Simulated assay, not measured.
Amino acid sequence: MIRSLVRPHVRRLPADLTGVLALTALTNVVVFAPVIRETPLRVPFGLVFVLIAPGYALVALVFPERGPVDRFDDANGGVQSPTTILERPRSWWGTIDGPERIAFSIASSAIIVPMIGFILITVQGTFRFGPTFVAVSVVTVALTAGAIWERLALSPADRFRVPYDEWMDTLRTSVFDSDSRRSAILNVTLICTILLVIASVGYAATALPQDDEYSTIYVLSEDDADPILEIPPGESQEVVVGVDNHEERTTTYTVVVVEQEMDVSENETRVVDQRELERFEATVDHDETWRLAHDVEPTANGEVRIVWLLYVDDAPAEPSIESAAYRVHLWVEEGES
């Protein structure tokens, strides 16, 4: 009943390649959706996508035909003999069977993903997770679309179809036959090694903190040109604080300016006393900069530094270096205030 409601051209889409498109779309939702991306789902979805999708799409494009050992039921209910399938393959490089297709898919993913990352690093000058993941997704969708086109251009008898029954037979043979079991163990060990290598890259890309989600804070002189090295004691100094938003979202920042009296002895720097001077708040769009001009006038004596503590969202009532997301400081020149 449900199948009759689906349009014929939709029913013709290969199930495995439709699954690749669905996996790509779902993974992007999990990785980039504001609420979902903070959940643990980001890691498994990202790993599965990076390990399988790009390489599988490429292999499906290059090898649209069924392999020499694939079987399928013909129109009369019988099983086609492998020798009658693809007597003359479309591709000059021939066909591959199921295990080769899996191995090539994993190996291709191990090549495609780092290559895209290398190209983007060369263009951007640094690694940024967001653009890299989007680029991998776009390449995967393009390869999948090409693979669907190539496969549908073949006759139904020649198209590759995931041979679930044959793979189950192979699995049973590998488990109960001693010679096949030894061969299977070697193949599984090789595949696990490849998966471990790609998983390490995938984990770094999906679970570890990303370079493209960060903020920066810095202090410039009043002409907004040169950095300030020190602040003169006992007089007001105008400074410009810059905050750059690279959090991949609109962010509200709070900057708390504090004066700290320091104890510097035996190669150790310790905060003796702290006084809050001012605090500022602003909402900044992604890839925009907040310029904050204000006056600083140190009041303490001895070893003193002015610290700008940057908080994402609200700042606590008692700010500290430990609680701040980012910070920058300037020492007050030696002298009496």
Rank of each mutant, 00 (worst) to 15 (best):
V197E: 01
P131R: 06
T27A: 01
L195Y: 10
E281T: 13
P34W: 02
A25W: 08
V255H: 00
T24I: 09
R37I: 00
W167N: 14
A22C: 07
I231C: 08
T84D: 13
A317Y: 10
T193A: 05
V31F: 08
G202Y: 00
S215W: 00
V138W: 14
T252H: 10
P209G: 00
A103K: 09
L58H: 06
R279D: 13
D73K: 03
V272E: 14
E297H: 10
V123S: 06
T140V: 11
S4V: 07
L23C: 00
P114T: 02
W308H: 13
D158K: 07
S215M: 02
E281D: 03
G94W: 07
Y214G: 06
T299H: 14
I106N: 02
R159A: 03
V62C: 12
R305F: 07
D226E: 14
C192R: 11
V257G: 02
R275G: 07
E297F: 01
A25C: 00
R12N: 10
E322G: 15
P298A: 08
R7V: 02
N267A: 07
R291K: 13
T252F: 09
Q80Y: 11
R249F: 01
E235I: 05
S337M: 11
L23F: 05
V304H: 02
R88K: 09
D223F: 13
R305A: 15
A325D: 15
A204G: 01
F280C: 05
H294Y: 12
A225M: 13
L5E: 09
D224Q: 11
W149M: 01
V328G: 00
A53Y: 04
G77S: 06
S183K: 14
Y164D: 04
G77F: 08
L310Y: 13
R270D: 13
R249P: 00
T173Y: 09
H329M: 02
M262T: 03
R161V: 10
T206R: 03
V141P: 01
A57Q: 06
W331E: 00
T132M: 08
P8H: 03
V20N: 04
